[in-house]
Amino acid sequence: MGSKERMQRCKDKVYNGILNAAMDILKTEGCESLSVRKIAEKIEYSVPVIYSYFLNKEAVLIELSRRGFATLVNCVEKALIGLTDPEARMESMLTAHIRFAQKESELYQLMYTVGIHVTDVEETFPILKDISNLFRKELNGLRKDISVTESSFRSNYLTFLSIAHGLATLNLYFRNLDPVANCTVLKRAVRGIISSIDFE
């Protein structure tokens, strides 16, 4: 291995170490407690080293969120494997969203908070396009005979996101929700999404 490769591997190790340390702090102490100084202490590097990789704390949070959205997309894609029924696929997308929010609650809350402070969410998080494309594919699968207009798609997609985020947030808030009741709400939400879809 050449010196350039060794240097790059070393840089990648520090970069990932910074993000892993930030995630640990986020999970154990919360977002408010996260600071560049705490990250530096955790990985035993100086503060200037952290700043050589990230402009500020917000840049660290944005990168953590990017990774979170990538993981969410992966979870949804896995949940759709082997399913052919359009309603079952919609339900699976919502379920995957909720399960991810429950498993990675601190990260999930960060993902939907940090975007409030950026100028252009879709530019900052290009991975959001992958999430919308997943929904677009499922929407087209519901009515293969109709081409959905862009404005109609946007409206339907935002409705889906509202329900997905709402259910995920409810499950974070009411941690002792009865699984049967939760399943009923989920199925009603899917029926609601499908019945409210506008194909024009």
Rank of each mutant, 00 (worst) to 15 (best):
K27A: 12
T28V: 03
T28A: 05
T28S: 12
E29M: 13
C31E: 14
C31N: 13
C31K: 15
C31G: 05
S33L: 07
S33K: 14
L34S: 00
S35A: 06
S35R: 01
V36D: 00
R37A: 09
R37T: 11
K38V: 01
K42G: 02
K42R: 15
I43T: 07
Y45L: 13
Y45E: 13
S46I: 10
V47C: 00
V47A: 14
P48Q: 13
V49N: 05
I50N: 00
Y51D: 02
Y53P: 13
Y53M: 07
Y53T: 14
Y53L: 09
F54W: 02
F54C: 11
L55W: 02
L55Q: 15
N56E: 08
K57V: 05
K57E: 03
K57F: 10
E58T: 11
E58A: 09
E58M: 11
A59L: 10
A59V: 05
L61M: 08
E63P: 03
S65A: 15
S65C: 12
S65K: 13
S65Y: 04
R67L: 06
R67T: 07
F69K: 14
A70S: 15
T71F: 02
T71W: 02
T71D: 10
L72G: 04
L72W: 10
L72V: 05
L72S: 11
L72P: 01
V73P: 03
V73H: 06
N74Q: 14
N74W: 12
V76E: 12
V76P: 04
A79Y: 02
A79R: 10
I81G: 06
G82Y: 00
L83P: 01
T84V: 06
T84A: 02
D85A: 03
D85F: 00
D85E: 09
E87C: 03
E87D: 03
A88N: 08
R89F: 07
E91L: 15
E91D: 14
S92R: 08
L94D: 09
H97V: 07
H97P: 08
I98Q: 02
R99N: 15
A101P: 07
Q102K: 13
K103V: 02
K103H: 03
E104F: 02
S105I: 05
S105K: 03
